[in-house]
Design a protein around this nucleic acid. Sequence first.
DNA 1: TGACATAATGAGAATTATTATCAGTTTAGG
DNA 2: CCTAAACTGATAATAATTCTCATTATGTCA
Lengths: 123, 123
Amino acid sequence: MNYSRQRQIILESLRENAVHPGAEYLYDIVKKEEPNLSLATLYRNLNRLAGAGIIKKIEGLEESAHYDHNTHEHYHFLCTKCNKIFDVSSDVAPDLLQKTESQTGFKVESYDIIFKGICNECR
Amino acid sequence: MNYSRQRQIILESLRENAVHPGAEYLYDIVKKEEPNLSLATLYRNLNRLAGAGIIKKIEGLEESAHYDHNTHEHYHFLCTKCNKIFDVSSDVAPDLLQKTESQTGFKVESYDIIFKGICNECR
DNA sequence: TGACATAATGAGAATTATTATCAGTTTAGG
DNA sequence: CCTAAACTGATAATAATTCTCATTATGTCA
């Protein structure tokens, strides 16, 4: 995989500026540094980076996908009131992968937990 | 909520014929009994039934949503080879809701775990 | 260094799933 | 039996994402 200027800016923007942005939000950030960037290039690179395991694509939170530079095992919580996304520690479900593999006999390649509800602020 | 003929057929089709169908697949089944059914009516009813907790909408498996008549706590596994969807027992993550609520202080209203990988058949 | 194959890009068209609109139909309850 | 509310079919609209394609950049190896 080549690291074009565009790809680097996308990755840096995700790492330094945005926590769990959707593509459109990230597009606005990246455009400040690379005004001619095509939306297609953004999507292409997000998919490419996620495919290589460098970032993680989070689906099922909202209609649109979100992207996370933090690839350490953790889960996500969407507040349905303020629409903010929070991290949830992986120890709410210890040994999830191993338990699932041994119980099902399947080979688990990826998994994710999505919580929805109301955050503290919004209660 | 009224139970129109269409709504009943949709719910019955989901319960009796299809396990975790997407909308298009379910549409084909339902059309056998109700050939004039509009796709909009199918979507409207699936959303309505899911909103009422009578069925469950599963997102994040594929681009399109899937629907499950089984509303008991359980999770899902998508085989990326044969594209079949399997149930995963909820005991792979015991007390997930309580643990998450007490750890975050948030109010969890819904949650789901999506696994992807290779099923036994496909190994 | 130069040439070529490969990979990447920008622009915009295309696709897919889903939702909105709206006029007409059905239904439940008084 | 009448009316308001809920529902329907058909189709247009929307939103997110992918595809196409002509062009440009990059890495490699002679």
